[in-house]
Simulated scan of single mutants.
Amino acid sequence: MDSRCFISDFRSNSVFSPPVPKALNKPFLALPCCWSARAHRWLYFEDAQFSASPRTRKSRFLPNLECINIRASRESIKNSAEEKKKKKPGVAKKKLAVFVSGGGSNFKSIHEACVEGSVHGEIVALVTNKTDCGGAEYARNKDIPVLQFPRTKDGADGLSPTSLIRNFEVEFVLLAGFLKLIPVELIRAYPRAILNIHPSLLPAFGGKGYYGMKVHKAVISSGARYSGPTIHFVDEHYDTGRILAQMVVPVLSTDSPEDLAARVLKEEHKLYKEVVAALCEERIVWREDGVPLIQSRQDPNHFC
C-alpha cells in the first residue's frame, strides 16, 4: 500500500479536535491507534508500518510521525526486558583466561559470546604454549594479551602461576585445546575455577595421549555408538576432574574420524558457551557429595 494513501486517512482536522479514547487512559502517542477524519472515529492497528509525509508530520495530532512498526516496537521492548532478566542481578562481569595450543575455535566462540553479551564475562588473557598458533593470532588481532606458558628459559613474557591473579585479576581459567598438564600450584590457586573441554564422553577415551583426532579414531575403532564433548573441572591429572556437562553425539556407521570430529566440535561450541555463561552468572552449585551441577536460569529449583 502506498504510504501516502494510508496516511491520508489519518490526517487531523485543523478545526475539529478528536476525543481521547476513554477506554485507554494513556497519552495519545503511546496508543496503537490513529484518529480517522474520514471515519470520524479512532482506528486501531496492530502492524502498521508507514512513513508520514512532511505535511502529515506537522499535524496537531500526529507530530513527528516517522517509520513506525508498533508491534515490532512492543516486541523489542519485551525481548529487551526478558534479556535483562536472564542476567543474574548484581553479578559483575567475570574475568577469564583461556589456554589454547592450536586454532582455538572454542576460544573464538566464547570470545564472540562475551562480546555479544550472551556470556557475562571478559577474556583478559590468552595463554598458550605455542605463540604462533591460530588462537594466539586471533587474540592479538582482538587486542587480547598473549602469554606464553610454560615459561621458556629466555622468555621474558612467560607466565607464572600467580601472575594471572596479580596482573590480570583472572577469576576463572578455561582450557580449550591446551595440551600441557596444568601445574599443581595453579590448580591450588584456582580451586573449582578451572574448566577443560574434552572431545569424548568421559571417563571413556580420556587421559594422557587422548586428544584431538586420536580421540575420534579410538571411538570409531571401539565400535562405540555414542560420543560427544565433556566439560569438567581440572585436577592434577589428565581428564579426571569432576564432570560438569556433557552432550551426546551419535556415531554413524559411515563416520570417518574427521566426520565425527566435525559434529562433536559443533556441539563443543554450544556446550562450552552455555557452561561459561552459567559460570559467569554464578549458577554452578556443588552437591554435598562433591558433584557440580548447573542451576537453570529460568527455574532456580531445577539443576542439570
Score class of each variant (00 low, 15 high):
Ser59Trp: 10
Lys108Tyr: 15
Cys114Phe: 01
Val170Thr: 00
His40Leu: 15
His269Val: 00
Ser3Arg: 00
Ile197Asp: 05
Lys58Ile: 05
Arg297Glu: 15
Val219Gly: 04
Thr56Glu: 03
Phe205His: 10
Gly223Val: 15
Phe50Ala: 08
Ile77Ser: 15
Ala52Phe: 03
Phe6Pro: 00
Tyr272Leu: 14
Glu83Cys: 12
Cys34Asp: 06
Pro145Asn: 13
Asp9Thr: 11
Leu271Tyr: 04
Lys85Ser: 12
Ile165Lys: 03
Ile231Ser: 05
Ser73Lys: 05
Asn106Ser: 13
Ile182Ala: 05
Val98Ser: 02
Ala113Gln: 02
Lys85Gly: 11
Leu202Val: 10
Asp289Met: 07
Ser160Asp: 02
Ser80Met: 09
Ala278His: 01
Gly212Arg: 09
Gly135Phe: 01
Gly241Pro: 08
Lys273Met: 04
Pro257Thr: 12
Leu181Gly: 00
Thr240Asp: 11
His216Leu: 06
His198Arg: 04
Cys280Asp: 01
Met247Ala: 14
Ser105Thr: 15
Phe45Cys: 12
Glu281Arg: 06
Lys142Trp: 02
Ala224Met: 02
Glu185Arg: 00
Leu252Arg: 05
Gly117His: 03
Leu43Val: 15
Thr240Leu: 03
Trp35Arg: 11
Ala30Ile: 09
Ile220Gly: 10
His269Met: 06
Arg55Phe: 15
Leu260Tyr: 07
Phe178Lys: 03
Arg74His: 12
Thr128Val: 10
Val251Glu: 09
Ala139Ile: 00
Ala52Thr: 11
Cys67His: 15
Ser227Tyr: 04
Val248Thr: 15
Pro32Ser: 02
Phe178Trp: 07
Val275Arg: 04
Glu281Lys: 07
Thr56Ser: 07
Gly290Glu: 01
Arg11Ala: 14
Ala204Asp: 10
Glu258Ala: 04
Met247Gly: 10
Val127Cys: 06
Lys88Glu: 11
Leu159Trp: 02
Ala37Phe: 11
Ser73Glu: 07
Ser14Thr: 00
Ile284Ala: 09
Ser256His: 11
Leu265Asp: 06
Lys214Gly: 08
Ala81Lys: 08
Ala278Phe: 01
Glu66Thr: 13
Leu202Ala: 09
Phe149Asp: 04
Val91Ser: 10
Asn13Gly: 12
Met213Ser: 12
Ile182Phe: 02
Leu202Tyr: 05
His40Thr: 14
Ala23Glu: 01
Leu62Asn: 14
Gln49Leu: 11
Ser105Ala: 14
Lys142Arg: 06
Val119Asn: 13
Ser227Gln: 08
Lys22Pro: 05
Val234Tyr: 02
Asn141Met: 08
Leu24Gln: 07
Gly212Phe: 03
Trp35Gly: 03
Ile77Thr: 15
Gly212Leu: 06
Ala156Cys: 09
Asn106Glu: 14
Phe107Asp: 13
Leu31Val: 13
Ala23Cys: 04
Cys34Val: 13
Lys93Phe: 07
Met213Val: 14
Ala204Cys: 14
Phe28Ala: 11
Val234Met: 02
Pro250Trp: 12
Leu29Ile: 13
Leu43Pro: 04
Gly104Phe: 03
Arg4Lys: 15
Asp235Gly: 04
Lys93Glu: 09
Ile284Met: 10
Glu258Phe: 10
